[in-house]
Amino acid sequence: MGEETRNLLPQEPGDNRTDPPAVEATRWVEEHGDILFRHALARVRNAAQAEDLVQETFLAALKARDRFAGRSSERTWLVGILKHKLIDHLRKSARETSFTDLECLAETEASSFMQEGLSRGKWQAETQPQDWHADPSASLDREAFWLVFRECLGGLPARVADAFLLREMDGLETGDICTSLGISPGNFWVMLHRARLALRRCLEINWFAKE
């Protein structure tokens, strides 16, 4: 990749990082704007908010550019800043809306398991996890799989997806997420559980059962 190679080279005068701020900023928007925008859009699902996040990221990067040590690629650095902006954003919007989405996927959980009789709590015949091929991870090398994956992720209720992706994509720990979003660990785990049930089922129906 271009960025990585550039950072392996000795820093010389005329290197990008010595460009005047305005020139550097223009180059950033051209080189990384779309990628950052898509990162943001995947998480906030609203183009205007995603654009704002990209702008805030570049502004923060511009202020902090002396601290960019060139140890990571420029893009990795910018994505890292975007992550912080995203968490701030989610924290603020969590305060503005109440956490009612917990109930959203309750139906998914209820319909996965028998509700009555001796078999109560067993998988329902039609939603029981099916065998996904001998080597399901081979799917991860196919572009078509990721298109389906993106669709399935987009189908999660927004608040559930926020919490779920902070955990799974950003790899944050339960305590940090619960503090940021103002939810209890118990509720958080229930949300994750339901999100996984829903995502699994969506992938099975739209990918693994079809292939």
Partner: peptide, 13 residues
Amino acid sequence: FPREDAHLPGGSL
């Protein structure tokens, strides 16, 4: 996913 998503056709600024 984030790495793969960056290569998928999709939104741009």
